[in-house]
Design a binder for these strands. Sequence first.
RNA 1: GGGCGGAUAGCUCAGCCGGGAGAGCGCUGCCCUUACAAGGCAGAGGUCACAGGUUCGAUCCCUGUUCCGCCUACCA
Length: 800
Amino acid sequence: MIPRQLEKTYDPKQVEERWYRFWTERGYFHASVDHPGEPYSIVIPPPNVTGSLHIGHALNNSLQDMLIRWRRMQGRNALWMPGMDHAGIATQNVVERQLIAEGSSREALGREAFIARIWEWKAKSGGTILQQLKRLGASCDWDRLRFTMDEGLSKAVREVFVRLYEEGLIYRGERLINWCPFCLTALSDIEVEHEETKGKLYHIKYPLADDPSRFLTVATTRPETMLGDTAVAVHPDDPRYRDLIGRNVRLPLTSREIPIVGDPILVDREFGTGAVKITPAHDFNDFEAGERHHLPRLKILDPHARLDPTGLQTAAVEQPIIDEVQLLPVAMARPKIEHALQSRGLLVAVEDHKMAVGKCYRSKTVVEPYLSPQWFVKIQPLADPAIRAVEDGRVRLIPEGWTNNYLGWMREIKDWCISRQIWWGHQIPAWYCRSCQSEAILPAADGSKSFTITSAAKPIVSRTAPTHCPDCGTHDFIRDPDVLDTWFSSALWPFSTLGWPDQTPEYKTFYPTSTLVTGLDILFFWVARMIMMGLKFTGDVPFRDVYIHALVRDAEGQKMSKSKGNVIDPLSVMDQYGTDALRFTLASMASPGRDIKLTEERIEGYRNFANKIWNAARFILMNLEDSHENAPPQEPAFADRWMLSRLNRAISEVNAALQRYRFDQAAEALYQFIWHEYCDWYLELIKPALQDRQSLTASHTRRMLVESFETILRLLHPFMPFLSEEIWQALPLKTRFEDSLMIQPYPRSRPEWEDKEIEAAFDILTRFTTTVRAGRSLLNYPPGKQLSLYGDSKNRDTSE
RNA sequence: GGGCGGAUAGCUCAGCCGGGAGAGCGCUGCCCUUACAAGGCAGAGGUCACAGGUUCGAUCCCUGUUCCGCCUACCA
């Protein structure tokens, strides 16, 4: 049976799929609640159902798999919980685009049929990423695969929503929110990406109502919104304007007069002209100022961010102006307004101005502040415990440098807008009685079947559809059409996937989870909210450690994106260099505090490393005898003792590094030891001893070779699972071990292997011995002190 | 505007508690030495961004400057 004939170069294609199937068929990935080991659990950051594997996923999931495989080999009851996210807007957009290509639309289909269509799509082409994760070697417990729209998870969502509502931590109200005019839905603050943009600052003269010869000049970046102004603010202590407070200005282009108010919060005397227009319905600051001064809110934009004719009428805009700008998108209306002001001599100046423009993180459309009835989570009562949990170390952020970021953000956190005006997602469990709330339920302006539920409507929030109205007893309801922010269900992920709200054995065993591995980009979207929800509903933190890894960038340090054409596709990397090479590369580059600039050369280098190991295996297999080795134990030779001492050091370093999430250091230690110590020196040094195959020395050396190499393979396995398994299976160890490397014990450091004297002697020798060949004669001396290397099986490093 | 991180060999980066300047790739020279040319051996290559300070001694600690990147923010 041995030596086995192996090819000169390692060919991952021959290997990977075979072993992955082997592992799954034997159920090695399955974590049982009955397992005697101490639980170790990780929930996967659920990839979008629309997603396909990009390099960031590859990094994120490789690291998780390393942790899981390491812990599993240590004897822990290791669960890696896999799943997918329904990804509300992203998924809806995908299917909607298909419909449009077919000449249809979601409106034409209607809500139910549209949702059915998405499920259909999901069944057919959703979740390709899961197959790709398998190629990566991910040892997830696939039996437990969850989806955020599962019945179980939906139940958790309803439970949380209803309980928060009943406690007054969820409310509905008309507020100014971030609105995407393309997606036609509300967004939360963190779904808006700010981008520095060159804009203009327009200085506009507003004539005083009682003295048209005098003007107040305001500065604005958005002149078109002036049509919705309901006041002008100045600083109450500003001597230039103090006397004007309380008087009115005539708002140009309209027939309205609006008051001049004093507002020290809104107005910075130094900026612009020291006078600010107030447009409460279309600007966040102005909204708040409007509340302070009890100003009306005039909404002049429609949901598409076009000038709304009805709104303009209400705002008493002059008819010729209405005719000119109605139904124009804001960007097109702006020059018209600018021109109108200019022709009346009211435009004093236009200067360049830098500003941050908010864009939708999905569609990249410019986001509008928009007044509409929405649902909110009152966040402060949830944030406080989440702040404390990090402050007192119950949740540890790694690297800890992010802790301050987290705390800073959490202390400034604002209420979370959780309603979205889309169809795909968890529909809000709120109903309205048609008979007693009829005044608050308005038919939609566009004449469609839909309707608008004003903020005055009184919702009935319930886990299931209500049977009768508690107020009037009738049973004619409409359900709130909104769905929840995708991140609402994600926030429950660590416990909803384990069966909560039921007290399942899985929940009791694996919650709180041990480690969360995530990128910085979703620290606030996701991590912070999981901590808040976890503490609120389970009374415990959702995870102990949060390992935050870097972003993967291209060789120029640019964020990878399809539009830039600079993506490194992990799938083609795996095709070309093998999964193990990719995994090892990502591990080696995962040093904290720096983004990863991935280059193909680096991957190639670790492909070579895999090949090096492969050839070391060939060398060992070529030297083995067909018969079993039955030589009596003998003390190891000088070279053996040196190698064992170094191996022991590598074992310590790898374990310590993994313990601290220093994947880069673990990879470095493995690389150094295996290549430059084990291969470059040890394998060379023992060659003479192997020459006389019949000799006792050769027999002992062979045994030492197999033993040490087997340990190396176990040490390597979390990083290069496929290669290590392939080689391990070829080694003649079956009589002693079970059938897969991945359930073998992970090496632990063995103090009796440490031998500082030998190491020092070796260092001195190699300083004067420039070639391996010369070193050989010196180092292959007979053994010095006795070492019980083989011992009996009890002494193996199998014990926990 | 506030905060964080980075600047070390041609390139990509590592350097944990202050004392040796390192790795991979690339480059040069010699080797198909019976595991591996995706390899071996030998080598060249650095004012550790800049300016001060602390110290017997600074890539490392402190201050400031410059340049990059990221996060965050309502200056109209």
